[in-house]
Amino acid sequence: KKRQCKVLFEYIPQNEDELELKVGDIIDINEEVEEGWWSGTLNNKLGLFPSNFVKELEVTD
Score class of each variant (00 low, 15 high):
Leu46Arg: 14
Leu57Arg: 03
Leu42Asp: 09
Gly36Met: 10
Leu8His: 06
Asp28Trp: 08
Thr41Ala: 10
Asp25Ala: 07
Lys1Val: 07
Asn52Cys: 14
Val7Phe: 01
Ile29Met: 14
Trp37Glu: 13
Val33Phe: 09
Phe49Glu: 01
Gly40Asp: 05
Val33Cys: 01
Lys1Gln: 08
Gly47Lys: 01
Glu34Val: 12
Val59Arg: 11
Leu48Pro: 06
Lys22Cys: 12
Cys5Tyr: 11
Asp61Asn: 08
Glu10Leu: 01
Leu21Phe: 01
Pro50Ala: 00
Lys22Ala: 04
Ile27Asn: 04
Leu8Phe: 15
Asn30Pro: 05
Ile26Leu: 09
Leu19Ser: 01
Glu31Leu: 07
Lys2Thr: 06
Gln4Ala: 14
Ser39Val: 14
Phe49Lys: 04
Leu48Thr: 13
Thr60Trp: 10
Val33Gln: 04
Asn52Trp: 05
Gly24Lys: 02
Gly40Phe: 05
Leu8Ser: 12
Glu34Ala: 10
Trp37Gly: 02
Asn44Lys: 13
Leu57Ser: 03
Lys55Thr: 10
Glu35Ala: 09
Asp25Pro: 06
Phe53Asn: 11
Thr41Lys: 09
Glu10Arg: 11
Leu42Ser: 14
Asp28Ile: 09
Gly24Trp: 02
Glu20Leu: 10
Glu35Pro: 11
Asp25Asn: 06
Glu58Met: 13
Thr41Val: 14
Glu35Tyr: 06
Lys1Met: 10
Leu57Ala: 04
Asn44Asp: 08
Glu58Arg: 09
Glu34Lys: 15
Gly47Pro: 01
Leu46Thr: 15
Asn44Ala: 12
Asn30Asp: 11
Asp17Ser: 15
Thr41Arg: 10
Lys1Ser: 09
Asp25Thr: 05
Asn43Asp: 07
Tyr11Arg: 14
Lys45Met: 04
Ile12Met: 13
Ile27Asp: 03
Phe49Ile: 00
Cys5Gly: 15
Asn44Met: 07
Leu42Tyr: 13
Thr60Ser: 12
Leu19Asn: 03
Asp61Cys: 04
Asp61Arg: 09
Val59Met: 09
Ile12Ala: 13
Glu16Leu: 06
Gly36Pro: 00
Val59Asn: 07
Gly40Ala: 02
Leu8Ile: 14
Gly24Asp: 09
Val59Trp: 11
Ile27Gly: 00
Glu31Thr: 12
Ile12Gly: 07
Lys55Asp: 08
Phe9Arg: 15
Thr60Asn: 10
Ile29Asp: 12
Pro50Asn: 12
Ser51Glu: 02
Asn43Trp: 03
Arg3Asp: 08
Glu31Phe: 04
Ile29Gln: 01
Glu32Arg: 06
Glu56His: 03
Gln4Ser: 15
Lys2Gln: 14
Ser39Leu: 14
Glu34Gln: 11
Asp25Gln: 06
Lys1Asp: 15
Ile12Asn: 15
Ser39Cys: 13
Ile27Phe: 04
Asp28Gly: 04
Glu31Lys: 14
Leu8Ala: 07
Asp61His: 15
Tyr11Thr: 05
Glu32Asn: 02
Asn43Pro: 01
Glu34Asn: 07
Val54Gly: 03
Glu34Trp: 07
Gly40Arg: 03
Gly36Gln: 05
Pro50Val: 00
Cys5Ala: 15
Val23Arg: 12
Gln14Leu: 06
Gly36Tyr: 08
Arg3His: 11
Ile26Ala: 00
Tyr11Asp: 05
Glu20Thr: 06
Leu46Glu: 15
Ser39Asp: 02
Leu42Glu: 00
Ser51Leu: 07
Asp61Glu: 15
Leu42Ile: 09
Glu10Lys: 09
Ser39Pro: 00
Lys55Asn: 10
Pro13Ser: 05
Glu16Thr: 14
Tyr11Gly: 01
Glu58Asp: 14
Ile26Cys: 02
Cys5Trp: 02
Glu32Lys: 10
Tyr11Lys: 06
Phe53Asp: 00
Lys2Pro: 08
Glu35Arg: 11
Ile12Glu: 11
Ser39His: 12
Trp38Phe: 09
Phe53Gln: 10
Leu46Ser: 14
Val7Lys: 00
Phe9Ser: 13
Glu34Arg: 12
Lys45Ile: 06
Ile26Asn: 01
Asp25Ile: 07
Val54Gln: 04
Glu16Gly: 08
Leu57Gly: 01
Lys6Tyr: 15
Glu10Ser: 14
Asn44Leu: 05
Leu8Gly: 11
Glu16Ser: 14
Gln4Met: 15
Trp38Cys: 06
Ile29Thr: 04
Lys1Arg: 10
Lys45Asp: 04
Glu31Gly: 10
Glu58Leu: 12
Ile29Lys: 03
Gly24Arg: 02
Phe53Ile: 15
Asn52His: 07
Gln4Lys: 15
Ile27Met: 02
Leu19Lys: 02
Lys45Gln: 14
Gly40Leu: 00
Arg3Ile: 06
Glu35Asp: 11
Val23Tyr: 11
Gly24Tyr: 04
Glu10Ala: 07
Asn52Lys: 14
Asp25Leu: 01
Pro50Ser: 05
Arg3Gln: 00
Arg3Tyr: 04
Glu20Gly: 07
Trp38Tyr: 14
Leu19Ile: 12
Glu56Asp: 05
Glu10Gly: 11
Asn52Met: 11
Leu42Thr: 11
Pro13Asp: 03
Ile26Tyr: 02
Pro50Tyr: 06
Val59Thr: 13
Leu48Ile: 13
Glu10Gln: 11
Asn30Ser: 11
Ser39Gln: 09
Lys1Tyr: 10
Gly40Trp: 03
Leu42Met: 05
Phe53Met: 14
Arg3Met: 09
Gln14Val: 07
Asn52Ser: 13
Lys45Tyr: 08
Lys55Leu: 08
Lys55Ala: 13
Cys5Ser: 07
Asn43Cys: 10
Ser39Met: 11
Leu48Ser: 05
Ile29Val: 14
Pro50Arg: 12
Lys45Asn: 10
Lys55Pro: 00
Ser51Met: 11
Glu56Arg: 10
Asp17Trp: 08
Asn43Gln: 08
Glu10His: 02
Glu58Phe: 10
Gln4Trp: 11
Gly36Asn: 13
Lys55His: 12
Phe9Glu: 15
Phe9Val: 13
Phe53His: 14
Gly24Ile: 09
Ile26Val: 09
Glu16Ala: 08
Leu8Tyr: 08
Asn52Tyr: 07
Lys55Val: 11
Thr41Asn: 13
Glu18Thr: 01
Val59Glu: 15
Phe49Trp: 00
Glu16Met: 15
Leu21Val: 03
Lys22Pro: 03
Lys2Glu: 15
Pro13Val: 00
Ile29Tyr: 01
Lys45Glu: 05
Lys55Phe: 10
Lys45Thr: 05
Pro13Phe: 06
Cys5Ile: 03
Lys6His: 13
Asn30Gly: 09
Glu31Asp: 13
Val33Leu: 10
Lys55Tyr: 06
Lys1Trp: 02
Val33Lys: 09
Glu18Asp: 02
Asp61Ser: 02
Cys5Met: 06
Asn15Gly: 10
Ser39Tyr: 09
Asp17His: 07
Glu18Phe: 01
Phe53Pro: 04
Leu19His: 02
Thr60Gly: 11
Glu35Lys: 07
Pro50Gln: 08
Thr60Cys: 10
Gly24Thr: 04
Leu46Trp: 13
Gly40Met: 00
Trp37Asp: 06
Val54Arg: 00
Pro50His: 14
Asn43Lys: 04
Thr41Gly: 04
Leu57Lys: 09
Leu48Asp: 01
Gly47Arg: 02
Gly47His: 02
Lys45Ala: 01
Gly36Phe: 09
Trp38Ile: 12
Val23Gly: 05
Gly36Ala: 07
Ser51Asn: 02
Leu8Asp: 08
Val54Ala: 04
Asn30Lys: 15
Ile29Pro: 03
Asn15Leu: 05
Lys22Thr: 15
Leu21Arg: 01
Glu58Lys: 13
Glu56Cys: 13
Asp17Gln: 08
Glu34Leu: 03
Leu8Val: 12
Trp37Pro: 04
Leu42Pro: 02
Lys6Leu: 15
Glu56Tyr: 02
Asp28Ser: 07
Asn43Glu: 07
Gly47Cys: 00
Asp17Glu: 15
Gly47Ser: 00
Glu35Met: 10
Glu10Pro: 11
Gly47Tyr: 06
Leu46Gln: 13
Thr60Val: 06
Glu31Asn: 13
Val33Tyr: 07
Glu35Ser: 15
Gly40Ser: 00
Gly36Ile: 03
Leu57Asn: 02
Val7Gln: 14
Glu18Ser: 01
Leu57Glu: 11
Val59Tyr: 13
Gly47Glu: 07
Trp37His: 03
Glu35Leu: 05
Glu10Thr: 09
Phe53Ala: 13
Val59Pro: 11
Leu19Ala: 00
Phe53Cys: 14
Asn30Val: 14
Asp61Thr: 07
